[in-house]
Design a protein around this nucleic acid. Structure first.
Lengths: 212, 212
DNA sequence: TGTTTATGGTGATTAATATCACTGTACCAC
DNA sequence: GTGGTACAGTGATATTAATCACCATAAACA
């Protein structure tokens, strides 16, 4: 696959031509089917990942195997952690998994620093990435710090709707429970209440958002 | 006060001489007594803040006036948000308050971008700052996502000990409750249990860490 | 000195969430 | 078809945290 085709370029409109040339030279395209864990806590980071297609779930895990959803990366977005990790060759603090069949562009971490000085558009992209991820993380923090579980579920569903671009979220109660670090029963009951209030419609394997 | 005296330089040993010259020219020293709110959610950010002395508490607030502690900034550290905000002239998503009498070095945000290209040591400092703040935020997230209140209190006390460099934490139960977004009664009871287990010693206005 | 205020201790109650136990049901593999 | 399995619903109970009410004490102050 040619790295810098028209569709890919459209995802990063601000990149300058010289940067695209470097990407063409250094980047690797990788296709990853849905459900693949592409990064695990403690793993060394060797490349920065830009998402071209699909959806990647970024989450935190603890020692007991619990998970906690942080945010999604969609086309045109990048992992901030894999950018900061670059310098010290440090290990990842988070895990990431493909939610849909995805295509990513990998760039060797050595290029990160190089391009920061070389290409203004790269520098701006990186800073923008830091900011966006930080903001999303703050939203997640708000949700868990200040909101009850029912509101957190609403927030979770809204986020998924926005990322998926559809009102039908393909997710099981068990998955929601895992990503919010709760239990299936609690989620089931609260979802039922949301359904009774007409906010969502429940079905097996998916939830339809009616009015959130 | 002279900006770049020996003590200040020791806080940022990696800064190159040319960068110090620019800081001398563009930076402003500001002394801020303890208890001052130096940044509020929604406020415009006009300068990047490097901490020279004292301690700054960075926290999140919600619409109902609740607070949630994120992390501290001590001497040699900087606010990551005020660095990313630079580009878009955006507003702050967080609040910050001096916990001790503090001295900070303010740098106009316009210089941020300029110096990133110009001084390698500045670039590295900024990236390091992003990473550190992100990491600390992840720790905070872990704590609230995976731990019960008693463990969160322990984590809170440990963090304060490390930042203050002393086993005696000058804090009231009410303050802890606010920063963990809980209530005084709950904190009091859990602190008592920690005291019974010999982990801390309670006194009016302060808590002594014995064995955490 | 007496009064006010902030701190913190504690019992009782309620609310939110977690856990356990069990049921039904759709779907998949054989 | 039949049996296994993942998904979902629900009652009962336990645990954790929040709220309410009230008291005691030390510090601050008029």
């Amino acid at each position: 696959m040619i790295v810098t085709n028209k569709e890919v370029k459209a995802l990063f409109p601000e990149f300058e031509p010289a940067l695209w040339a470097s990407i063409e030279h250094e980047g690797t395209i990788k296709e990853i089917p849905a459900g693949n864990i592409i990064m695990r806590t403690g793993q060394f980071i060797r490349s920065t990942v830009l998402v071209l297609e699909g959806l990647i779930k970024v989450y935190r895990t603890d020692d007991d195997g619990n998970e906690f959803f942080m945010y999604h990366l969609g086309p045109g977005q990048a992992c901030a952690l894999s950018m900061t990790c670059a310098i010290g060759q440090q290990t990842s603090q988070i895990s990431a998994k493909t939610s849909k069949d995805s295509v990513v562009l990998q760039i060797p971490i050595e290029k990160m620093d190089e391009w920061m000085g070389e290409y203004r558009s790269w520098y701006q992209f990186v800073v923008q990435t830091y900011r966006s991820r930080f903001d999303e993380l703050l939203q997640t923090l708000d949700s868990i710090a200040f909101r009850h579980m029912d509101e957190r579920i609403e927030f979770y569903l809204k986020r998924h709707r926005d990322k998926l671009g559809t009102n039908t979220i393909p997710v099981t109660h068990q998955e929601i429970a895992q990503e919010l670090n709760s239990s299936r029963e609690v989620i089931s009951r609260l979802l039922k209440k949301l359904a009774e209030r007409g906010k969502i419609k429940l079905s097996r394997y998916h939830i339809e958002i009616l009015d959130l």
